Computed example of a mutant assay.
Amino acid sequence: MTPADAGAVLAIYQAGLDDGNASFETAAPAWAAFDTGKLPGHRLVAVDGDTVLGWIAVSPVSARPVYAGVVEHSVYVDPAAQGRGVGRTLLDALIASTEAAGIWTIQSAIFPENQASVALHRAAGFRAIGVRVKVARHAAQANRWRDTVLVERRSPVVL
């Protein structure tokens, strides 16, 4: 992922947010904020020719050195490209890049209603470690309380 991908990445992000089952966020940030919050070595895009089909990126979960090997990830696929294996390709590439860098845990929070994401993560070796019940209100859905399923993948290579 490079700054040249910014427009497509943020448009795909916004499409996921508009769907209502991807995040509590309601608007994609400006590129500068997005760029600052993601670790540079683990930002990937899936492309077909010049078209970005999806993206994946990680953020550190903590600034504390003991958590240097734990990241939180996001994966978004253009609605027109869903169901074509793009998410799995991105997730597999992320696993490879994080393991090569010594990262031992990738985690995320998924709305339980997002069954495609739950299934994708399960197939890629993630496990549900718990449900946060009514963890926050979703402004895009009339401030409805939402649950999230916490998933993680522990690296068998790094551990």
Rank of each mutant, 00 (worst) to 15 (best):
1 M>R: 04
3 P>S: 00
4 A>S: 04
5 D>F: 02
5 D>R: 02
5 D>M: 01
8 A>S: 06
8 A>G: 06
9 V>P: 01
9 V>L: 02
10 L>A: 04
11 A>T: 09
11 A>E: 09
12 I>S: 05
13 Y>L: 15
15 A>M: 07
17 L>M: 13
20 G>N: 15
20 G>P: 09
21 N>A: 09
22 A>P: 13
22 A>M: 13
22 A>R: 07
24 F>V: 07
27 A>T: 14
27 A>Y: 14
33 A>N: 07
33 A>K: 06
33 A>I: 04
34 F>G: 02
37 G>Y: 05
37 G>F: 06
38 K>M: 11
38 K>G: 06
38 K>Q: 12
39 L>Q: 08
41 G>W: 10
45 V>Y: 00
45 V>P: 01
46 A>P: 03
46 A>D: 05
46 A>T: 06
47 V>S: 15
47 V>C: 10
48 D>V: 08
49 G>I: 04
49 G>D: 01
52 V>S: 00
52 V>D: 00
52 V>L: 00
53 L>D: 05
55 W>E: 03
55 W>G: 02
58 V>S: 02
58 V>A: 04
58 V>M: 04
60 P>G: 07
60 P>Y: 03
62 S>D: 00
62 S>G: 05
63 A>K: 13
65 P>G: 11
66 V>R: 09
68 A>I: 12
72 E>V: 11
74 S>K: 07
75 V>L: 08
76 Y>W: 12
78 D>P: 01
78 D>F: 06
80 A>P: 07
81 A>R: 01
84 R>N: 13
84 R>D: 14
84 R>S: 10
86 V>W: 02
87 G>Y: 00
88 R>P: 00
92 D>K: 15
94 L>A: 05
96 A>S: 07
97 S>C: 13
98 T>Y: 11
98 T>N: 08
100 A>I: 10
100 A>H: 11
100 A>Q: 11
101 A>L: 14
102 G>N: 05
103 I>G: 02
107 Q>E: 13
109 A>G: 14
114 N>T: 06
115 Q>K: 09
116 A>F: 09
117 S>W: 05
118 V>C: 05
118 V>G: 01
120 L>M: 00
121 H>A: 03
121 H>C: 03
122 R>W: 10
123 A>Q: 04
124 A>V: 03
124 A>S: 09
125 G>I: 03
125 G>E: 03
127 R>H: 14
127 R>Y: 13
128 A>D: 15
128 A>L: 14
129 I>V: 15
130 G>Y: 07
130 G>Q: 08
135 V>K: 14
136 A>K: 12
136 A>H: 09
137 R>K: 12
140 A>N: 11
141 Q>N: 12
142 A>P: 08
145 W>E: 15
145 W>N: 12
146 R>P: 09
147 D>W: 05
150 L>I: 03
151 V>M: 00
151 V>F: 00
152 E>V: 02
153 R>T: 01
154 R>D: 08
156 P>A: 08
157 V>I: 10
157 V>Q: 11
158 V>D: 08
159 L>Y: 14
